[in-house]
Structure formats: C-alpha cells, structure tokens
Amino acid sequence: MLHLLVADGNDRAGRETHLSVCDKTSAETYAGILHALAPDAVCHLVAPADADAALPRALSDCDALVLTGSTLHVEDGGPAVTRQCDLVRAALEAGVPVFGSCWGVQVAATIAGGRAARNPRGPEYGLARAITRTQAGADHPLLAGRPPAWDAPAIHDDAVVEPPPGSTVLAGNDRLDVQAIEIRLGDGVFWGTQYHPELDLDEVAAMLRLSAEGVVQAGLCPDEAALHAYADALRDLHGDPEGRADLAWRLGVAAEVLAPERRRREIANFLDRLVRPRRRP
C-alpha cells in the first residue's frame, strides 16, 4: 500500500473559491486521480498554508508528497508561502519523492535556489501549446510516452524564470523555458510540470471563469463574454469528448489533452517510475 501526502497549495480563501467553482478542492482533485492511477494508494490531505495545519501522517511514513496549484505567489512571501516551502524542503531532505504542478514547481525551484516570478513572456490560460522536450529531457522517465510535441492544461501568470543550480529542465515551449523539471535536494527528488496534468477540461473552464479579467487584460479574449463562451465550449467538450469533434477541432484540442490516461501521463510516471521503486519497506 502506498501512503501519499497531498498538500493543497491554496490558503483558506483560495480553497473556498476553488471549491465554489469546482465542487472539490485542488487536493481532492489530486487525491481522486492518484487513487485512480494507484488503487492501492491511501491519500492523506493537508493544507500547509494554514497556521494550524498538522500533518495527518509523518513524512517518514509517506511514500511521496504531491503539491497542488495555488492562487498564492511565491514572491509575495509570508507565512502561508514559507510553511509550504518548509514542508517541501523537509520532504526532499528526508528523501521523500515530491511531485508538483504549477505552484508546486515554483515552490520547489525557490527552495533549491531558483526564482519564480511573473512570466515576462506573459501568462498561459487554458492550454500550454507545443511543449517539447529539451535535450536533457529526451529520455527522462517523467515524460515517458509523450509525443515529440504536446499540449496540456495550463493556467498561470507566475513561472520558474530562473531554474535552480543543478536542476534539469526537461521541457519548454515558446512561452516558457521551464515546463517540466527535475530538482534534487538532499536525498530527495522532485519531478514537476508548470502545466496541470491533473485538470479535466471542465475544471480548466471553471478556473478560466475565475481568471476572466486577467485573460482579457492579457489580450487573449476581446471581452469577458468571449471568455465565457470559450469556457462553455471547454465544458461541453469535457462532457462529450467523443461526440463533439466539432468543438475539439474549433478549440484545437487533441488526444493528449482529451484522453485522461494521456493527459495524466506525468503523474502516472511519477508513481510508477519514481515512487514505487523507492517505496519504503
């Protein structure tokens, strides 16, 4: 049996907002996916941004830590950020494998000596397009099974703008050099993606609605009505991915995004290629 600690990157306000549009928290989304990919897994949820958070299981008794996305900004600092940095640092120094998407990558890069900040090339809203491996990522197990180029759900303003010393950047695209990365700290290994392999298209749609003002300000939609129409199309495509080929064509959404087993490939690779081989007796 695997014991996986799932840390929600949001503070209380962020969790409540996410819950209001997605009917589940980011940690609950991840826990459901982890259990689907590893039926023998038990997920222990924690919200480390909170001052009163207590680990439901000791790190030494966990096979892995997974850190979700967040509405927080690493550069802002503060206790809610520091507590999460401390948790990831403690896990890695204890040799616990860590996976993170979006916020998780930014936290891991920061504690290892890199820098996360607003992406100078602009945000990615909806999908990160044409992600490709670096030379170092060509045969890396995190990306096993990915085609030469792929798209993935993505919603972020911030990103890793300076990778930490000694890290291995595995993939990027024209918007961002660090779309996937490996970071080693202490006895631990971090694998992560700036994009969101955990998100279904209906969740992407819901999060876009929350970011409507930012999407319009970035020039990606002419107005909020256009953004909501785009979100409606994503939601409808999620509800009928096989029957709405018209929407997939119009939105430019291919199988790497539509098929859950392909969209979640990095999470499955983390479990199968990193966690299970290092599983504690």
Rank of each mutant, 00 (worst) to 15 (best):
A117W: 05
S101R: 03
D151V: 15
L59T: 07
A90C: 11
A53V: 02
F270M: 10
T17W: 03
W191F: 07
R184P: 08
E198N: 08
T134L: 13
P141E: 08
V98T: 08
P141V: 09
R250M: 12
G186D: 06
P164F: 08
P123N: 11
T17M: 08
I131Q: 01
A218G: 09
R184D: 06
L5T: 02
T132G: 06
I155D: 04
I181E: 06
Q194L: 07
A108Y: 03
A36I: 08
T71V: 15
P197T: 11
Q135F: 05
R265M: 12
A212K: 07
P147F: 15
A255D: 15
G14W: 00
G126Y: 02
L271Y: 03
G104S: 11
D63G: 05
D187C: 13
M207Y: 04
A54P: 06
G100D: 03
P97C: 09
R89D: 14
D187I: 07
M1V: 14
R175M: 05
S101D: 04
A138E: 14
I111W: 01
A149T: 14
D40G: 08
D232I: 10
S101W: 02
R250N: 11
K24F: 07
L143M: 05
M207H: 05
L251D: 09
G95C: 15
L37P: 01
R118L: 09
R121E: 12
D223W: 04
C221H: 03
R280N: 14
G32D: 07
G214A: 14
D157Q: 13
V81Q: 01
D76I: 11
A154L: 10
A212D: 05
G145N: 08
A109E: 05
P97I: 04
E124L: 10
A233Y: 04
V46L: 11
N173T: 09
G239H: 13
A154I: 07
P39C: 08
G95A: 12
N10F: 14
H18I: 15
T17L: 14
L185Y: 05
L208Y: 00
E203C: 09
D200P: 00
S26T: 09
D40A: 13
H35E: 12
A259P: 01
G243W: 11
S167V: 12
Y230W: 09
D76T: 12
L274D: 13
G172L: 00
L247D: 02
A109F: 05
P141Q: 10
I181W: 08
P120S: 11
A109L: 11
G78W: 07
G14M: 00
H44R: 03
G243M: 09
V253H: 01
E28D: 13
T134D: 10
S211H: 11
D86T: 10
D246N: 10
A130D: 11
A171S: 06
R279L: 13
D8N: 05
L127I: 15
L19R: 07
L34A: 03
L237G: 00
V178Q: 02
P281M: 02
H35Y: 12
A171V: 03
L2E: 15
H3C: 10
L5N: 00
L2M: 15
A36S: 12
G78V: 13
D246M: 08
D50P: 01
A130H: 14
C62V: 02
I131P: 00
A117M: 09
A49V: 08
